[in-house]
Nucleic acid binder design. Structure first.
Lengths: 187, 187
DNA sequence: ATTAGGCTATACAGGTTAGTATAATTAAGC
DNA sequence: GCTTAATTATACTAACCTGTATAGCCTAAT
């Protein structure tokens, strides 16, 4: 991959997170990345295309990191579910955390026709599906229900944590998650 | 109050919710409200001012409806906390539900300098504070912690419900809320 | 009927944005 | 040293958006 392409992607990702997607112009991105519009439009068909690639890369990175973390640090399926939120907290509070793109993207692109909205809602669905599969392996009866509840907590916490940095939302989300997991396991 | 002013407010509220705030131009608003820009700018200093008033009205309506509902349908403080999510579900699934403005507004205006961001984060804080006061009256030890958890669930559920209409997110959020409330009450 | 106030219609200024065209510049390979 | 390819620099178009200016219209009260 071209290093300039990567630079544009990471710069855009950072700006989208801190300034918002719609309020970040292409000119701002290329200036911050130390390149020009011509180069950006060589690698990306349009701004929308760039947004989609930023979202995809961010989601892939997170999913890869999370499943690797779970697979190498736990053995039992029930243990994975228990440690899920510990690792999520680790991700969210890590210094290079650039936000969960799909959460904000769906808010900035509320129209269901928008490809950006479609991709981010698909990613949200995928994440919920992943939690559900963990719950299923741990032989939880209503695995989908628990997965939905945990993803609600997760999305709410990420948003709150970004709204007021250091609000401790993730800590309480973690506690709530453990209560819900234990409650679902005893049925 | 002028009926035209009210019409502009309600029209803007509806459009902001369905199309997003930033992607809804004033021309679109006045066309949908059946008036002209001159009239809009007679009643509102700027678009930003209109956004702030829409947010304020929506939040006031919700808070008034919710506390009235709680006060007239419950007696004991613990009962209020228990029924909180039942009423929230009623509000969210009601046909004239126009969304929780402050949740999306903070996402569309991520810069902390923005007055819109400041107002919506203040409203989010107020809502959490209200839940906390209910929890306090019910003699829950960690009232703030429970309030934070419940507001996470709430914000997550509203967003999910809007992302995929009829996802049943609110139903599961309600169940999770009851588990968390009961867990917090026995400490 | 006429006057006055609110509303409409329309055009426009000023700024911002995505995206393109064109030419100059750099750097690497032979 | 020359060619080739990639990147830069800069200017521009076309669309869009907020906010304003100006003139005309309609209705209600006197």
């Amino acid at each position: 991959m071209s290093p300039l392409r990567e630079k544009i992607l990471s710069t855009a990702s950072h700006l989208f997170q801190t300034q918002g997607i719609n309020s970040t112009g292409v000119d701002t991105i290329v200036a911050a990345a130390g390149t020009t519009k011509m180069t950006l439009y060589k690698y990306f068909r349009s701004k929308e295309n760039l947004i989609l690639e930023v979202l995809e890369e961010g989601h892939k990175d997170f999913q890869a990191w999370l499943s690797e973390k779970l697979n190498s640090n736990t053995s039992q399926p029930s243990e994975k579910l228990q440690k899920l939120f510990d690792f999520i907290e680790e991700w969210v509070t890590s210094p290079n955390f650039r936000g969960m793109g799909f959460i904000k993207a769906s808010a900035e692109f509320p129209s269901e026709d928008s490809p950006v909205h479609q991709l981010s809602s698909e990613q949200s669905r995928q994440f919920k599906q992943y939690i559900s599969s963990l719950a299923h392996e741990a032989h939880i009866q209503d695995a989908d229900g628990l997965a939905l509840q945990l993803s609600l907590l997760f999305e709410g916490a990420v948003q709150a944590e970004q709204m007021i940095r250091g609000s401790g939302a993730m800590t309480y989300a973690k506690k709530a998650a453990k209560i819900l997991i234990n409650g679902a396991a005893t049925h």
